Amino acid sequence: MSTESDYFPTWLLSGLLTLAAPACLASDNDVTADQVVSALEKTFGVHQGERRNHTKGTCAVGEFVGSQDARVYSRSALFSGKPVPVVARFSMPGGNPKVPDTARIPRGMALEFRLPDGSLQHMTMLNTPVFGAASPQTFLDDIVAKTPDPATGKPDPEKIKAFKASHPDSLPQAEFLAKHNPPPSWVNSSYFGIHAFKFVNRDNKTTLVRWRFVPEDGEKQLSDDELKSAPKDFLEEKLIDRTRGGPVRWQMVLTIGVPGDNEDNPTLPWPDDRKAVSIGTLTISSATPQKGAECENINFDPLVMTDGIEPSTDPVLLFRSPAYAVSFSKRLNGK
């Protein structure tokens, strides 16, 4: 398996290219990547050498076999019908490395696909069908609202209440989380790409799409009683044990957009009647604690894409890359 140094040039290039993005985005959103990362540090503290967001996580490896049927939509080498090595990371959002696994917050799955020609494809997903912000400004304001009060050491409930009242785009994800208990295992969640993307085929035809990964182990939720009695940390151990018992699989399902479907607001779902096709199988063969493991030093920049897959105009998607680059740079420097 390749080492971090083998892939470092690609990560570094991605970071250098995207560090320039905040300046142009700031004119539209008045938010920079530095501001967001600094806010995360103020809210969750600085944990040296660790991610500023999605700090708590577990590494895994496996492979992806993309269906050649998907090539009607995309010319990406992902859909060759041949196995592609994958490095995965399952995580909890926020900068608290000790956040309990019972927290009513999203779960994340990030994937790095390593193609035969040395190119990479990243996918960073959540187990909620919508995101909690339609703009970088809402994302920043959410973090700021959760900053602990020096007097109590906890977020001020009134500030959080005021944030929700003034940011209606934050509500769809919050409502979903309130109605769905957390899963008993990483393997019992679907993971959504959240954003719209563009698939481009060999004829240069562009199709607006969204994707999700659906678990073959089935979607499950902890009961209210299980949620109360569950230990603080169980997700990592369960994933490791599950993979020891055999491979874990998800089906990649592509939802096909139609003219008029929203492509720039990740808080708005597409209608349920959109065409959906299965275009590949992700198999996770083993998992391990992230310290020293292969996923630990990967910057899962969602704008690292193969030919045949392109970003939409979603401002949150475009902002993630420079924010990831700032965090990644700090980790590289041991900060």
Rank of each mutant, 00 (worst) to 15 (best):
T152Y: 06
K228H: 08
P83Q: 05
I256T: 08
G81L: 11
E216F: 12
T58Y: 02
D6A: 15
C59W: 01
L235D: 06
T243V: 13
P271K: 14
G153P: 04
G45H: 11
S229L: 12
V316M: 09
G95L: 03
G57A: 04
I256V: 10
P215W: 03
M125R: 00
P231N: 08
V200E: 09
R320Q: 10
Y191V: 14
D314H: 11
L78G: 00
L332C: 10
D217C: 10
L177M: 01
S27R: 12
R331Y: 13
E310W: 08
V248K: 05
K161Y: 10
I309R: 01
G308L: 02
D225V: 13
I309D: 03
D273E: 15
A134S: 04
P311K: 05
H47E: 09
A110G: 04
T281G: 02
V304Y: 05
M123T: 10
T288Y: 05
A230L: 11
E236S: 06
A151R: 13
T281V: 14
S190T: 11
P100N: 07
I194Q: 04
T281Y: 02
T43L: 09
P22L: 10
R244N: 12
A162I: 11
D34E: 13
L332D: 05
P22T: 07
E296R: 07
P266W: 03
S170T: 02
